[in-house]
Design a protein around this nucleic acid. Structure first.
Lengths: 152, 152
DNA sequence: GTGCTATGTTCGTACTACGAACTAACTGGG
DNA sequence: CCCAGTTAGTTCGTAGTACGAACATAGCAC
């Protein structure tokens, strides 16, 4: 179906749509003077504070990679480390007020841009797409790297 | 609808599904001793040779970023630069035989892994998802960073 | 309390990405 | 024909990303 071979297999569709999302994410990050990874860090922390370990698992990074990422975010005043009162080895990473503000702006801009990608879909198509992607996300236990727009 | 809030908005669905695809892509790349960017380069070049300019536009990179990426791929014997007979400033970047072999293996492995992400969808759901993503990809003129499985 | 494990950091290496400045080559107007 | 302006790529300096190995501490189990 579809004129001009517009329909892709699921695999190519997922990969190429991801490429678009990545590009849009990068554009948003750049707009706010962030790197993609820093933007991702802020988005994750919007939900709640994380320990370094959880953060690495969520972002799919080794702990050694994370130290630097958090360091740079700390240096920019976006994030801070707080000691864990129950475990003197552990730290919690959480947004500073400025970090939260920037995170929310970045999040909103990214939502807007990603939404624009799907601009030509009808409301029922959007629902259908959201449901199908939701299935994939949940079946594969994708970590919460990006909150849903309508938060419970 | 959906048990346990399994349905996401389109935006969060796209972002989080992209995160999964990125992770899978990285895993594939690692399996073949490639970085994500090198894998992407190989996948693009599977379709045809590119000039540095077109390549930058396709991958969304500045030309200065591309020089190094291609240099490293050349150093690994995956890719070579060929002079453009019609323009002595320009070069064509194309896969070496080893590069093509690796590209095809990497491509196949990535297809398999991405396909697995959608393993729990029924055939009609997969078709529907492919069609919806195809619309997004075409409406937004996503470059051919990943060939469709059934090449025309 | 002594070994074992878990949490983070440090260090060295390779890669990514950008903009500015540069070289070489093409192109169009005179 | 030649020069000005443009285009294709490279070089260079800077910042950030990502990893594994080695490390220091702190908790935990026995």
């Amino acid at each position: 179906m579809g004129k001009s071979g517009a329909d892709l297999g699921v695999v190519a569709g997922l990969v190429r749509a991801s490429f678009l999302v990545n590009a849009v994410y990068a554009e948003s990050a750049r707009e706010y003077g962030l790197t993609v990874q820093q933007g991702q860090l802020l988005c994750v922390l919007m939900g709640r504070p994380y320990g370094m370990g959880d953060l690495g698992a969520t972002l799919g990074l080794e702990k050694s990679s994370l130290t630097g990422l958090v360091d740079r975010a700390v240096r920019r005043g976006l994030v801070r480390r707080a000691p864990d009162p129950d475990d003197r080895r552990a730290v919690h990473v959480l947004l500073t007020p400025e970090g939260r503000e920037l995170a929310e702006d970045f999040y909103a801009a990214t939502c807007r841009r990603v939404d624009d990608l799907a601009a030509r879909l009808s409301p029922p198509e959007r629902d259908r797409l959201g449901a199908l992607l939701g299935t994939i996300v949940h079946e594969n236990e994708a970590p919460t790297v990006f909150l849903d727009t309508l938060q419970p």
